[in-house]
Amino acid sequence: MIGVGKIKQYSNVLDKPLSKGKQEVSLSAFAFLFSELVQYNQTQVDNIAELERRLEDAGYAVGARVLELLCHRDKGNRRETRLLGILSFVHSTVWKVLFGKVADSLEKGTEHEDEYMISEKELLVNRFISIPKDMGTFNCGAFVAGIVRGVLDGAGFPAVVTAHFVPVEGQHRPRTTILIKFAEEVLRREARLG
């Protein structure tokens, strides 16, 4: 950080380095805001799949912006062009900026070539949320899935991203897995690049 009195003068605002901004926001404030987001969307839909889709759309807009910002801030206006590169960018850089930590794990699906999973023991958005029994497998992580989809889509890796609860042995609470299923063309391009 530049000390007081040593502040460099920039004649043009565009020459200024992009500030990192305040790194942290209140968790409570976020939790209440997110809760309201879910409640509002709940009034607009009549089934759970629709609610999930709306949350995902809200996240998509965040993801698209986050990609833009982070490419500019951390990568000197370059973006990842390879599959593993973009996945680790999401898993570490994006996660760190949004949630203050890297995601717990990033794995390749065992059954399908085009599937990757980001798992999180306790997703930040789900910290205070208990899903009622009658909502079945609904997961508010759909919002985070939307963010991931936004980042991937913006970077040219179209994919279908969904959030699921996965029970863990010996743990009372299930963990959340973000399942990423890439579009065919992404894999074809990846194969061509070798």
Binding site: A31, F128, I129, P132
Partner: peptide, 21 residues
């Protein structure tokens, strides 16, 4: 305040049914 009021599926003044709570 944490696990009931921040839960979007809780309706104010209604019986509390929140697993995390």
């Amino acid at each position: 305040t944490d696990y009931v009021l921040k839960n979007p599926f809780y309706e104010m003044e209604m019986p509390i049914r929140c697993e995390l709570f």
